[in-house]
Deep mutational scan, measured.
Amino acid sequence: IDAAQIVDEALEQGITLFVVNNRLQYETSRDSIPTELLNKWKQHKQELIDFLNQLD
Rank of each mutant, 00 (worst) to 15 (best):
H44V: 06
D2Q: 12
R23V: 15
F51D: 00
I33Q: 01
R30T: 06
L17G: 00
A4V: 05
E9I: 04
S29K: 13
T16Y: 15
G14M: 04
L17D: 02
I33H: 02
D2W: 11
L17P: 00
K40E: 04
P34T: 05
E12I: 10
L17F: 06
A3M: 14
I15C: 05
V20P: 01
D56C: 12
E36V: 08
A4T: 04
A10G: 03
E12T: 10
Y26K: 01
Q43H: 08
V20H: 12
L48Y: 01
Q54C: 09
G14C: 08
L24H: 00
T28R: 03
R23A: 14
R30N: 09
A10E: 00
T16Q: 09
L55W: 08
S29Q: 11
L52T: 00
G14D: 05
Q43A: 12
I1S: 11
I1N: 09
K42D: 14
A4M: 09
K40H: 05
D50E: 11
V19C: 06
T35Q: 13
Y26D: 00
L55K: 13
E36S: 09
Q25A: 12
E27G: 06
R30H: 07
V7I: 13
E36Y: 13
T35L: 13
D56Q: 15
K40R: 08
D8F: 15
F18G: 06
I1F: 12
I15Y: 08
I6S: 02
L11F: 09
I6F: 05
A3T: 05
Q5I: 09
N22F: 05
K45L: 15
E27C: 15
L38T: 07
N22I: 10
I49C: 04
T35P: 12
E47H: 07
S32C: 13
L55I: 11
I49P: 00
N21V: 04
D31T: 12
I49D: 00
A3I: 14
K45T: 15
D2M: 13
N21S: 06
D56N: 14
V7W: 07
A4R: 14
E36T: 08
L11N: 09
D50I: 10
I49N: 01
V7A: 03
R30I: 07
L11K: 14
I15Q: 00
D56V: 12
Q13A: 14
L52V: 02
L38S: 05
D31H: 09
E27M: 12
A10Y: 03
D50K: 10
N39R: 11
I1V: 13
Q5K: 11
E9V: 02
D2I: 14
A4F: 05
V7G: 01
E9K: 04
R23G: 09
E36R: 07
D56R: 12
D8M: 15
D31C: 11
W41N: 00
F51Q: 02
E27F: 14
V19M: 03
F18Q: 10
P34H: 03
T35S: 10
V20Y: 10
R23I: 15
A3E: 03
T28D: 02
R23K: 14
D56A: 14
I49H: 02
K42M: 14
Q13R: 10
S32P: 11
W41V: 12
D31I: 09
I33K: 01
V19Q: 03
L17V: 02
R30V: 07
A10P: 00
A4Y: 06
L55F: 10
L55V: 10
K42T: 12
D31K: 11
I49V: 08
H44S: 05
T28Y: 05
L17Y: 00
V7S: 01
T16M: 11
N53V: 12
K42A: 14
H44M: 06
E9C: 05
K40I: 08
V19F: 03
L37I: 05
R23W: 08
I6A: 03
Q25P: 00
R30S: 07
T35Y: 10
I33V: 12
E47F: 07
L24D: 00
E9P: 00
W41S: 01
I6C: 05
L48H: 00
